[in-house]
Design a protein around this nucleic acid. Sequence first.
RNA 1: UAUGCAGGCCGUUCUAUCGCUUCAUCGCAAGGUGGGGAGGAAAGUCCGGACAACACAGGGUGCCGUACCACCUAACGGGUGGGCAGGUGGCGGGUAACUUCCACCUGACAGAUAGUGCCGCAGAGAACUAUACCGCCAUGCGCCCAUGUAUGGGUGCGAGGUAAGGGUGAAAACGCGGGGUAAGAGCCCACGGAUGUACCAGCAAUGUUGCAUCGGGUAAACCUUACGGGUUGAAAAGCCAAAUAGGUUGCAAUUGGUUACGUGUAACCAGGGGGGCGGCCCGCUCUUCAUUUGCAAUGGGUAGGCAGAUACAGGUUACAGGCGACUGUAAUCGCAGAUAAAUGAUAGAAUCCGCGCUUGCGUGGAACAGAACCCGGCUUACAGGCCUGCAUUUUUA
RNA 2: CGGGACGUAGCGUAGCCUGGUAUCGCGCCAGCAUGGGGUGCUGGAGGUCGGAGGUUCAAAUCCUCUCGUCCCGA
Length: 146
Amino acid sequence: MYITRFKNTGECKATLKQFTLNKEERLKSRKLMDELFVSGKTLTVFPFRLVWIETKLLVDYPAQMAVSVSKRNFKHAVDRNRLKRLMREAYRKNKPGVYDTAKQLNKQYALMLIYTGRKMVDYAEVESKIIITLKKFTERCNETPA
RNA sequence: UAUGCAGGCCGUUCUAUCGCUUCAUCGCAAGGUGGGGAGGAAAGUCCGGACAACACAGGGUGCCGUACCACCUAACGGGUGGGCAGGUGGCGGGUAACUUCCACCUGACAGAUAGUGCCGCAGAGAACUAUACCGCCAUGCGCCCAUGUAUGGGUGCGAGGUAAGGGUGAAAACGCGGGGUAAGAGCCCACGGAUGUACCAGCAAUGUUGCAUCGGGUAAACCUUACGGGUUGAAAAGCCAAAUAGGUUGCAAUUGGUUACGUGUAACCAGGGGGGCGGCCCGCUCUUCAUUUGCAAUGGGUAGGCAGAUACAGGUUACAGGCGACUGUAAUCGCAGAUAAAUGAUAGAAUCCGCGCUUGCGUGGAACAGAACCCGGCUUACAGGCCUGCAUUUUUA
RNA sequence: CGGGACGUAGCGUAGCCUGGUAUCGCGCCAGCAUGGGGUGCUGGAGGUCGGAGGUUCAAAUCCUCUCGUCCCGA
């Protein structure tokens, strides 16, 4: 849906670059993640939980994200990989809102998406719930500018 | 053609758009272009190797593992071929039990005749050749009966022989038939079985035949024999190395505490080492240290990076050797390399399967399952499909 | 990635090494005692010993494979 909208505006080539998710946009630092779990803020939209923290990143992007699926809830590696891929895909397509908010506030964030459900779901449901989650996240960021 | 058994192979495909990762290339850069991107089990982690670090004269013992024989292999607990045992099926033979032959499957398949242990309950007895329960057979003594008058029968007590029969049990001291005997017993014989041994055949396991012997089971109980194993695993081992803290060294500055006030000065008190005066102690005096700060150097080393780590017991094809596992030669190919961890999402079409209506539409679904140092096996999971061999049945030629 | 332990009645456990009978406590059911309940006493039921295969006359126990749970190392 985003694709068609931006195509209509006429600035196709430049705006399409928004929907990327390369190495530098993924959270990879073990130290940051430890900090995230110790002092991060949480927000839950079933079946997801978003943990975030405002911090200084070593890259230019306004946010880095990671995904996680518990081995306890999904025994097979195939299922865990599939859920993580779906979550990454949904974030990739819906992250411009997050980036805009972060740029306006001149902040950088580390995010982690955790799947807390116990059942497999399809992509449509994952994307709809991720949109809600990210919308709530941006609202919370605007509420607490300090 | 169908069924069964055995073996092998495949295990969704294509297009478009948006993404991820890696390599090459172009570019000052932003980025562009092109190529590669999960499996037969990637799984379980049950074995074996490669590689690495540490240890190591040699021998014995212990511990762990393996176990018919030969071969293959880098190696193996894997594989191939053979032997033996058991099972299934088939054509025959036979009244039947059973069985020649053929095919397939299964086998932790060394040793119980080296030793120790165990074998509940039942049973007389559960292991060095048996404490005889019922029974069978003689026999001593007593009593009773019969008569042909020295024997027979019955019965009680005693002392023997006997493993044929009954009974117990999962299992009873080779099986079975005959001879033999008082009754019996491999005591003897025929057939069969087991063990040892000799000759022959075979590389060997083993087999044929002869001779000797007849000793229950259990080694997935201890054990014996033979062979093998040094230990630890990519979190091994190595290289580069930011920031911060701390270590060491050098240089410079700074003694510490208490009291007073104007908060950096003054006064008072006090420790260790060294030097000087002095023969020595005390004492006097000088200096330094402990402490803190700054700068510089340095080694260890964290985050992170490099590398280990993807071209090798490699794949494919052809030829040759071998019954086969496999090996040799030649040609050809380059076939994932992530690291909080890529290989995905959406739309459309095809293929297959299920359901509904009904003969082409609708709808749902696409087995098991995701590389993490690599390789060779084993084991386990798996929708559906294809191929080969063997056996049987039916039909056709 | 590597290493280790455990699955037994509704719950918690013993038995496994050294193979033949599955133990104990709580809970459950019935009876007695009480006007009734609790407490107490007596009796009883309830077990594929996680699953499959093997060794053995005989397996919860021994061996192999497998499923699940938990723990440890980094």
